[in-house]
């Protein structure tokens, strides 16, 4: 598809003046489906005051931030997330990931970005059928060319982190929903990506499983990972340092709940645990 950003970006223009550059920088992003009257603007941003055309979404996310995206059904949350995860391409606008314009990457480079920089957690788990938990978690490492022994070691560690070391040989149809989602989390974090994107990771889980998954995500953010997650639940959003609200493909509110370079609010609240966030990950309640 044709993208508007045809001009190559001079590196100087991309790098902001401040010391930590945003991992995610989005400018004028729009996404529409269909043609003519049937066009759906899933992402549109504010309207141009002159001719009423969509200006697109602008968004910066700092390194280490924990952002919750909220909004009613159909407001464009998943659309935004898929573009951020390089799974989809915007209709117009630019997306700079770590200062690189993703629109200029070819298929090969995109798969590298997906593999190395992004861990994606889907609402519907999206585990590979008929494959054991261990093999699931090893998969991104295999695509990264990690050797078998090292792959196994890291996959074991990731599964242990989500508390599923004893379920390594189970296939998706032998796991509960919460366990499947934890396998998906392990798979997303096993490559140690700088950025974790989660589309309603707890949407299909009961409150107990929700707490387990959130505790893992909190821990990951505490170790410096950037997290963006979509949720409908205020309880989940309370874990985030920043909450965005989307309505009709537009960001209508942007609320900061905690500092970027601190622990996530829930962990911060538990004073005693703050200093050992790392150890807490595995043993959440």
């Amino acid at each position: 598809m044709a993208r508007r950003s045809r001009k190559p970006q001079p590196a100087a223009a991309v790098t902001p003046a401040g010391p930590p550059p945003p991992v995610i920088r989005v400018r004028g992003l729009t996404k529409s489906y269909g043609h003519g009257d049937a066009t759906v603007h899933a992402l549109r941003g504010p309207e141009d005051p002159v001719d009423g055309s969509p200006l697109g979404v602008d968004l910066d996310i700092e390194q280490g931030d924990f952002v919750a995206v909220m909004g009613s059904s159909g407001s464009g949350k998943s659309t935004l997330m898929n573009i951020l995860g390089c799974l989809d391409v915007p209709t117009t606008g630019r997306y700079l990931l770590d200062g690189t314009d993703v629109g200029h990457l070819d298929e090969q480079q995109l798969s590298l970005v997906r593999n190395r920089k992004i861990g994606f957690i889907f609402q519907s788990f999206n585990l590979v059928p008929r494959t054991t938990a261990m093999a699931q978690v090893e998969l991104p490492l295999a695509y990264a060319g990690v050797r078998a022994a090292e792959r196994r070691r890291r996959a074991e560690a990731a599964l242990a982190l989500v508390g599923l070391a004893d379920r390594a040989d189970h296939k998706p149809n032998e796991l509960s929903g919460g366990q499947q989602q934890r396998v998906a989390v392990a798979r997303a974090l096993v490559t140690a990506p700088a950025m974790l994107l989660a589309d309603e990771p707890t949407g299909n889980l009961d409150s107990r499983s929700t707490e387990e998954v959130l505790a893992i995500i909190d821990g990951l953010n505490a170790t410096g990972r950037t997290v963006v997650l979509i949720t409908h639940e205020n309880e989940v959003a309370s874990h985030a340092k920043r909450v965005l609200r989307l309505v009709d493909g537009q960001i209508v509110s942007d609320l900061r709940q905690g500092p970027v370079d601190g622990p996530p609010p829930v962990l911060a609240a538990r004073q005693s645990a703050t200093r050992q966030a790392g150890q807490l990950i595995g043993g959440a309640r």
Partner: peptide, 16 residues
Amino acid sequence: TREIGIRKALGAPKAV
């Protein structure tokens, strides 16, 4: 096809 989508999302290159 869905499985292929999952694999691509995990960073599987087209050639693989």
